[in-house]
Nucleic acid binder design. Structure first.
Length: 284
DNA sequence: GCGTATGCTAGACGCATCGA
DNA sequence: TCGATGCGTCTAGCATACGC
């Protein structure tokens, strides 16, 4: 059986990650400003150790940032966490839990296995360590332990005496937050409004980077409706709308090379989106 | 002008060290 | 002993130098 690949999340303290994400919000596309801001959070430490060795890889593995070097910036999920965290600590955690649960569900499945299997948590951890690809058992254990620590700090797992179990109340809240059915009817309206606002901001250039519209739509859903739309959900919802209708045509632009977080549609990967309105009055 | 070599920078990751 | 921290090293990608 092919072993799972679980990356090592070196900076897994959620409160620290919140602070680091604020630096990314303050200094998008500004590596120097970003580096200085982050190093202030880690007194007297080296750029290589903290910035390049811990923060960047961890945030990238969690899908919270995009780009390299001067292009480093928040992803839509990262931006959503920052917006929610500004509202309150609990709201920040609420969004973080949704993002973590989505990753766990896709790659690791600790939460599902903990619910499903009526076995001791340590046994579950041991069986996971055997199933993941890592240079050594020590490394595999470290990867699982860091992931478990994040789930504990997020409150999705709870420690009772020496046992770990699922925080059922919180998890049902996360499941509610990740329920896409409540978002379908609002999606089209929000999507076209955000497209229009980015279009105007770009001085009427119709071709928009998909990461930008993801960020705009996910933020709008949260601020207007208090709904969490993750990047994965955005992509699913976008795939669900008509690309050609009586009043508009949506075109997608291919990526020039290997890039991050491309939009997958009908087995192809796209980086940009543009909309031609046939009867502008109708839609906007 | 073109192709190759070399050096530098940034990102990623393994593992050593330290303290509880 | 184990978890937390961060240093050392490797690799990829890019820019520049150099030779033909």
């Amino acid at each position: 059986m092919k072993k799972k690949i679980i990356p090592l999340i070196k900076e897994y303290r959620i409160q620290k990650l919140f602070k680091v994400l604020v630096c990314f919000e303050k200094y998008p596309f500004n590596r120097d400003g970003l580096r200085e801001c982050i190093l202030q959070l880690y007194k007297s430490k080296e750029e290589k150790s903290i910035f390049r060795g811990m923060v960047i890889p961890s945030l990238r593995h969690l899908g919270l940032i995009l780009g390299y070097d001067e292009d480093l910036r928040l992803s839509a999920n990262g931006n959503l966490i920052v917006i929610a965290r500004k509202k309150s600590e609990e709201e920040g955690l609420r969004v973080f839990r949704a993002v973590l649960t989505e990753i766990d569900d896709l790659d690791i499945k600790i939460l599902k296995m903990t619910i499903k299997r009526n076995i001791d948590f340590d046994n579950l951890k041991y069986s996971l360590i055997k199933k993941i690809e890592a240079p050594s058992e020590k490394q595999a254990r470290e990867r699982i332990n860091h992931w478990v620590s994040m789930l504990l700090e997020a409150g999705l797992l709870v420690k009772e005496n020496e046992k770990r179990s699922i925080a059922k109340g919180l998890l049902s809240q996360v499941e509610k937050d990740l329920d896409v059915s409540t978002k379908k009817e609002k999606f089209e309206k929000v999507f076209f409004e955000v497209y229009e606002s980015i279009f105007k901001k770009q001085e009427n250039i119709p071709i928009i980077d998909i990461p930008d519209i993801r960020t705009g739509v996910t933020a709008a859903f949260y601020t207007r409706h208090n709904l969490i739309v993750t990047e994965k959900q955005f992509d699913g919802l976008l795939r669900g709308i008509k690309f050609a209708a009586d009043d508009y045509i949506i075109s997608l632009g291919r990526a020039m090379g290997a890039e991050e977080k491309l939009f997958k549609h009908e087995n192809n990967y796209y980086r940009t989106i543009s909309i031609r309105f046939l009867n502008k009055e109708v839609k906007i």
